[in-house]
Amino acid sequence: MQIKKQIVLNKSGEVLLPIIWFGKEKEIIYDIYLAEKGASIKVLGVFFGTGESTVDVKVNIYHNSPETTSHFLLKGVLEDSSSINFDGLVKIIKGAKGSIAWLGAYLLLLSNASKGRAVPSLEIAENDIKAGHATTIGKVNELELFYLMSRGIPYEKSKMLLVEGFLSSVVNQLSKGKQSAVKERIAEYANNFI
């Protein structure tokens, strides 16, 4: 199953693009064009992999106009032997002065068979801009887990608390409707253990 979309922002103003994956799609491709001065996009990705689900995610954001903004935040949680393959490109052309781009991709590996690949790329041909990206890939923080368990909360529950905490910074920015849908899915999954 594939999602392939092209988004062209032709006017000033912010557009919110949620990308939510719970294992169904195998490929997600977005080409986003910030074509007009002042165009701005906020991409919020919530990814939750279980079983053997894998997904190739490609997001290309093109800043083709001055004063365009892109803010991309992806958080992925991978259980069992699921994996995410992420390629993100932010391209700022010459003349796109005053543009701001930020890309963050964070993956949490919950099992010893889960895997992640993240390649956040930047191609910048204009100097009067600000761009940055950050990626972290790792497992649940041992000390945070220890702390929660030291209060009597069992391992699985503590882990899920941390997973929810990890995703919260993205989830809390989604629309109310989507927030509940996502929280429900996660709770459903958590109940398998608890």
Partner: peptide, 21 residues
């Protein structure tokens, strides 16, 4: 340009990457 490839096949690790232009 920045092209950082991060491939993680082991769970018990920490990887961090930051870039700014």
């Amino acid at each position: 340009d920045t092209y950082p490839v991060n491939i993680i096949n082991e769970q018990d690790v920490t990887l961090g990457h930051e870039a700014s232009v």
